[in-house]
Simulated scan of single mutants.
Amino acid sequence: MCGRYASIKAPTDLADEFHAVDATDGQVQADYNVAPTKNIVAVVERHPRDAEGTPDPDTTERSLRVVRWGFVPFFAKDPKGGARMINARSESAAEKPAFRRAMASRRCLIPADGWFEWQRGAGSNSGHKQPYYTHYRDGSSLAMAGLWEFWKPKDDPDNEYPEGLVTATVLTTAAVGVLSQVHDRMPLVLPPSAWDTWLDPDLSAKDDAVAALLAPPSDEVIAALELRPVSPLVNSVRNNGPELLAELPPEDVREPLQLDLLGGPNPA
């Protein structure tokens, strides 16, 4: 699963990296401890619309947008359940009523500097969860596959959602290599070569090119990752700073991982 991640880069830098237009309008700041229900950055690609709202089928525009993390299906009566839908399983999202429409034409990328996952210790340490932070060694952004949706209440007497609500979820897949020692699920991380296909609003989830991207990350992607134990400070959403990403000293790690299973150079 993915329940916490870091998003540090400025939107202008993300726009360059993802070849997108920055439409975040200063609404997000660097966040070392992104948690569910927070506003996050998503990369979307849509057909631009004219003044009457008619889309131009011959043109697409890729942009950074601000969305809320926690998926609210378009048919939901209220947005309260969004906090429970921060993740969707890549293996079944296309068939689930909540995600089916988004999988068809509202796929997005959710940039992250890295994500956190908690490993539950074994034996006498079974109550202890050691947090780990995973990111690309070269500092480039992770592109987590996601889905977004627009929700607007049928009745809004208090005018609480005058412009509706745009929410997103992170797709997860089976964890690979050493990552499976931490958790059996991980975010579906897409390499740059997959971005155009994933974001294409004219390709459905049934298209072979899109379906092929739902498999666990390749060995090449996994080998580019660095995985390190970090402080339990990240457990609290009230903590938010670069210290959350610092590697924990070996003597403080209760059950070190077998890092040679990562498939590349020792990431420690």
Rank of each mutant, 00 (worst) to 15 (best):
P249E: 00
L233C: 05
S236R: 12
V210T: 02
V237K: 13
G241V: 01
D202M: 13
A246P: 00
L225I: 07
L213R: 10
R228Y: 00
E247I: 14
V237L: 14
P216L: 00
E251K: 14
V230Q: 02
V221I: 14
S236E: 12
L214W: 02
R238L: 10
S236N: 15
N239Y: 03
P201N: 03
P229S: 07
L203M: 15
D208W: 01
E243P: 01
L214I: 02
L233K: 11
E247A: 15
R228V: 09
V230Y: 04
D202N: 15
P250W: 05
S236D: 14
L244I: 02
L225P: 09
L248C: 00
D219G: 06
D200L: 06
S218V: 04
V234E: 03
E247L: 12
D207N: 12
A224W: 00
A215F: 10
N235H: 14
G241R: 01
D200T: 06
S231H: 09
L199E: 06
A223I: 03
A246V: 10
S218A: 12
E220R: 14
E220I: 12
P229K: 08
G241F: 02
S231L: 12
V210A: 03
L227C: 11
I222M: 09
P216E: 00
A212W: 06
S236C: 07
A205W: 04
A212E: 11
S218W: 07
K206A: 11
A205T: 08
P216T: 01
E220N: 09
E226C: 13
D208T: 15
P201C: 07
V234T: 03
D202K: 13
L199P: 06
A215L: 12
L233F: 09
G241Y: 01
N239C: 05
A209T: 15
P249A: 00
P242A: 05
P242L: 03
N239T: 03
A223G: 02
E226Q: 14
I222V: 13
D200F: 10
P217H: 10
P229L: 03
K206Y: 08
P242R: 05
L213T: 09
P217W: 09
L213F: 11
A215P: 09
G241T: 01
G241K: 00
R228P: 00
V210F: 03
A205N: 10
P201Q: 06
S236V: 07
D219R: 13
P201S: 07
L248K: 04
L227S: 02
P229D: 06
A209I: 04
D252Y: 12
D252W: 11
S231A: 12
A212F: 08
P201Y: 08
A246H: 08
D219M: 05
E243C: 01
V234H: 02
V230K: 03
